[in-house]
Amino acid sequence: MSRDGAEAWSVKRYLLVVLLATLAALGTVAWARPSMFTSIVVVAGLGYHRESALPDSFYSVRVAPILEEQCAGCHGPRLQRARLRLDTLGDVKLGGKNGAVVKAGHPQESELFTRLLLPKSDKRAMPAGNKPPLSPDEIKVIELWIASGASGRTAVAAIAGAPPPPPAPIVIANFDAEAVARARAPLKDALESLSARYPGAIAYLSRDSADLSVDAQRLGAAFTDANLAELAPLAAAVTRLDLSNTAVTDGATATLAAFERLETLRLNETKVGDELLSATANLRNLQSLTVIGTRVTPDRVAQLRQKGLRVHDARD
């Protein structure tokens, strides 16, 4: 059925041409979409080397926290946009559907870096959507890491010029608010009346605690043994007591013994002596005692120190 009279191919020749053309086509696809073949290698378990990072490396200390905070939401265990994960060094090196995102030593050729520089109007800009862009310091850290070879073994100190790390975030632990409220309930009435009488002197140690701190120092010489005795309803809840610069004397020994959960006691610049400190025998939680400018004797201080109490006096 030939029109041009040319000789027909043999089936063998045809199959050879098709085979070569197929290999060429597969080669083109492999060149255009390297991730496809990487994925096949990984899925087949053919030994793709998954690089891991040392815990004290520049990557672990400086880069990984940024990627975790800014990128892992869409490129992490839950979502793998563009088939890319950025939550481990191995995954960062593996790349996504468009191939590698990091070219070691060449940040300007690494999408992990270049996409951070795109204007927000560019839909390829990262982070995508309404997420705020990375700070200049964070971008600099990623640039320096890639420029240094994008390794998981390079030490923090080995990469010069990195911006200082951001201050550690303040972590507020979760607490059982109801349990705290229940523990505070018995103190409520007494605390209200005594707080009104001694404004600013009594406060809870923290929002997750029913322990109290009493700062009588601010009341100065007006605060006497009798005033300390008025705190008796709260005594069992007080863990910090500062009686410095007050008029408290050894006469308050019995009263002080009732503060059996005290951990910190300050008696600076008061007239108390060794007698008051006999009350400490009852204060089993006491860890720190400050007696600068008092009549407490060095022998008594030494005795208390022998018992394991941290005692600060004028000789320190």
Partner: peptide, 29 residues
């Protein structure tokens, strides 16, 4: 969607191989 496109590419490739077979082996343009 991405996977189906690969399937379409495979079909296109088979189509081209078949066309080549008819044109070159069968001499049927």
């Amino acid at each position: 969607h991405v996977f189906l496109f690969d399937a379409i590419l495979v079909c296109i490739w088979l189509h081209l191989c078949a066309i080549t077979f008819y044109v070159k082996v069968k001499r049927d343009d």
